[in-house]
């Protein structure tokens, strides 16, 4: 027994070493080829000034700041849209998924129509449609609509009072020559992306939720009802705990896809990580490095999400056992 186990470990170690050797060889050949052709390589450009501005950013960013900071601002923008979109799509998707199981014919029909429409139109088209609908409908920045004092809506987005940047406590948006000045703005790019990603992913979440609930054998519902549980109790105590276990893994996939789909932002002018990295790639010409960086960041995001989901799954398992 022990001999076999050692042999297996040995083979695995050999394979791992071979894989590492191939990777190392690839990197080495790449570096040698690039050097031979006079192509500069390396990540030194990350500490150089970026030289370009970013339209909207959670982190304060100026074109004199480093490229690394520009990429961080891009990542922050990705998360700024992905996290709320994950929340909205999960809530909306759950409601629609439940709606698809409703005994009410109209509700069921509407939810089915929603899922089929949103799922079967490419996301990029949906984003462009939302974006151009949003920008076409809103008034010009110079003729911004005043919703309440210091809240304006225009093609430049929704301008709100925000914490002051330079000394003052509150930064109020005001009308200026070029439109609205000051405050914080939720831009049409951000709103269209948030809306598009949330609605599109909600359709998939709905299907995941529906499938999860339907995966609980019918006998369980019958038994619970026979025991005198109300429909709410049936759902909370019997269906949900069991359904969650089959919902969470595919739901994680949806959240991962949503984060990755957020990279379509560049099509509608939202400065996400890919958009900033694209600009960096063009300014510096370091294609291999920039693409490797994007890949590494998305890999880390995905692994974090997967890890979070595994943790949730374990918890939901415990919850199911407790209840």
């Amino acid at each position: 027994m022990q001999g076999r186990r050692q042999r297996e470990l040995g083979i695995q170690a050999l394979l791992a070493a071979a894989l590492l050797a191939v990777l190392w060889w690839l990197l080495d050949v790449t570096a040698a080829n690039m050097a031979e052709r006079g192509i500069r390589s390396g990540f030194d450009f990350l500490t150089e000034p970026a030289g370009f501005a970013i339209g909207e950013s959670l982190l304060p960013f100026d074109s004199a700041d480093s490229t690394l900071l520009a990429l961080a601002a891009g990542l922050a923008n990705t998360l700024r849209v992905a996290l709320p979109a994950i929340l909205i799509s999960t809530l909306l998707g759950t409601l629609i998924g439940l709606g698809r199981l409703s005994t009410n014919l109209l509700l069921r029909g509407l939810c089915t129509a929603y899922v089929e429409t949103l799922r079967n139109v490419p996301l990029l088209l949906q984003l462009l449609a939302w974006y151009f609908v949003v920008t076409d409908l809103l008034p010009l920045a110079s003729e911004a609509l005043q919703l309440t004092p210091h809240v304006f809506l225009s093609k430049s987005g929704l301008s709100l009072p925000w914490f002051g940047g330079d000394g003052s406590l509150i930064d109020l948006p005001l009308r200026g020559d070029m439109g609205i000045v000051g405050g914080a703005a939720l831009t049409p790019e951000f709103l269209a992306l948030l809306l598009g990603l949330s609605l599109y992913t909600a359709a998939y979440v709905a299907e995941t939720v529906r499938a999860g609930i339907q995966s609980v054998p019918r006998g369980q519902s019958d038994a619970a009802l026979a025991l005198g549980l109300t429909r709410a109790q049936l759902f909370r105590l019997v269906l949900l705990p069991q359904a969650l276990r089959s919902i969470i893994p595919p739901l994680t996939n949806q959240h991962l896809s949503l984060t990755k789909n957020a990279s379509l932002a560049v099509a509608i002018g939202y400065p996400d990580l890919v958009s900033v990295a694209n600009t960096t790639l063009n300014q510096t010409g370091r294609a291999a490095e920039c693409i490797a960086l994007i890949m590494a960041v998305y890999l880390i995001l995905s692994l974090l999400t997967a890890w979070l989901s595994a943790w949730l799954e374990r918890r939901s398992g415990r919850w199911a056992e407790r209840s």
Binding site: A53, G55, T187, E189, V266, I268, G269, S275, N278, T279
Partner: peptide, 12 residues
């Protein structure tokens, strides 16, 4: 000023 950056000429 604030740049609004698009990948595609048509969209911009």
């Amino acid at each position: 000023v604030k740049p609004v950056v698009f990948e595609k000429f048509e969209a911009s």
